[in-house]
Write a protein that binds this DNA or RNA. Structure first.
Lengths: 202, 202
DNA sequence: CATTCTAGATCGAACGCTCATTCTATGTTA
DNA sequence: TAACATAGAATGAGCGTTCGATCTAGAATG
């Protein structure tokens, strides 16, 4: 009677329930502003019961950070596996921008960064995930540049990645600081800025 | 015996003392992680005494956010008053990047954004300051583009500002997520990316 | 010049509250 | 019945904030 992998176990369902509720609360009140009482109420269970699935509050934070970064990891892997990577990248820009401009998503992602700057455990999760993303993007950009006849050293490629990623991460901040961005024109400009980055001759 | 404006009054000194200490504590523990007790100890006074200068903790947060944004406002005004604005902008990129890559500075700035996404009072300060910055930058870019013979509509100029600013704000996130950025090469790439943004023909 | 007065600066204990976490008791399932 | 799921009250620490007491510097007074 144990459905092993076909259906998630009750414990897995409970864990996901807590994680969903916690993400909501963290978005609304921040990692430290949200209380276990709030999370438990939002998850429909008692405060004490949460401690059957997570050692403490920090473990919930870590789990959310990890799952959030994992989703980003699969996105970059997806782009990398496209046949025409350059076109795939530019095509995905609109999609990526939409995600960056979503207040809910951006709010939670921006919660993570300052937390990483002071919580060593979160910092480690964030930095190791970031490294994997950068390596993946670096290979992607190198292939794209190679196809156009350019050969760059590793340091230049790494810097390209930084600029590339900085633009998207910066857009998340823009969404908070200026909620009235004109989405359509920003997409167009982002695409041409990224194309210039990929096509430049040093 | 009152030195009016030549020397700051005792109250002003005390306020600045509190603000400095608070900025330090907020950097280390976040807006909600830092306690009045910590701030008071770091400022060298009793917890109760802080309430002679600030109504409550949120007032301290607001004051720090406001002073931080004011500093940015003077920077953009400075650039705008240069004779050759385009060169001034590109020249200041290195300076701006240095500031973005400073962990201390970036940590506090990144604390502000998620706070703005849930604290309406902070949000208002941030958004109105951001609007002033954007307007200033927009005029600057318009003049630069005009000098090169380009005429852009307001929406395009606004989007250019967004991309421009997003790059710098994104760099602050990069510093946290990847502390090992190669500063020199990023500066070079940033400059060429921004030059491409300013010189593009649509 | 010495003394008194006073208003602001400063302290730190105390308050009420909320938090993360623990623990024991009860319910549920197989 | 044995093992696990769940509840919710209890705990103790820490928080932001308040408040009355003390201190101090300088003005007012004689």
């Amino acid at each position: 009677m144990c459905p092993e992998s076909i259906e998630p176990s009750r414990a897995e369902v409970r864990r996901a329930q807590i994680l969903d509720a916690a993400a909501d609360c963290f978005r609304q009140h921040g990692f430290h502003g949200a209380s276990i009482a709030q999370i438990s109420k939002s998850a429909g269970m008692s405060p004490g019961h949460i401690y059957h699935y997570f050692e403490n509050k920090e473990a919930i934070i870590s789990a959310i950070v990890a799952s959030d970064l994992e989703r980003f990891l699969t996105l970059t892997a997806e782009i990398r596996s496209a046949c025409n990577v350059r076109e795939a990248m530019l095509a995905r820009v609109a999609e990526g921008i939409d995600q960056c401009l979503d207040h809910q998503t951006a709010g939670l992602k921006l919660e993570i960064v300052p937390e990483a700057s002071r919580n060593p455990h979160v910092a480690e999760i964030v930095r190791s995930a970031d490294q994997v993303c950068r390596e993946s993007l670096m290979l992607t950009i190198r292939d794209t540049r190679h196809a156009a006849g350019h050969v760059d050293d590793d340091a230049t490629l790494a810097a390209m990645v930084e600029v590339f990623v900085a633009m998207f991460e910066g857009l998340q901040i823009r969404t908070i600081r200026n909620p009235d961005i004109d989405r359509g024109i920003v997409i167009r400009l982002f695409q041409s800025a990224l194309a210039a980055l990929l096509d430049q001759t040093p």
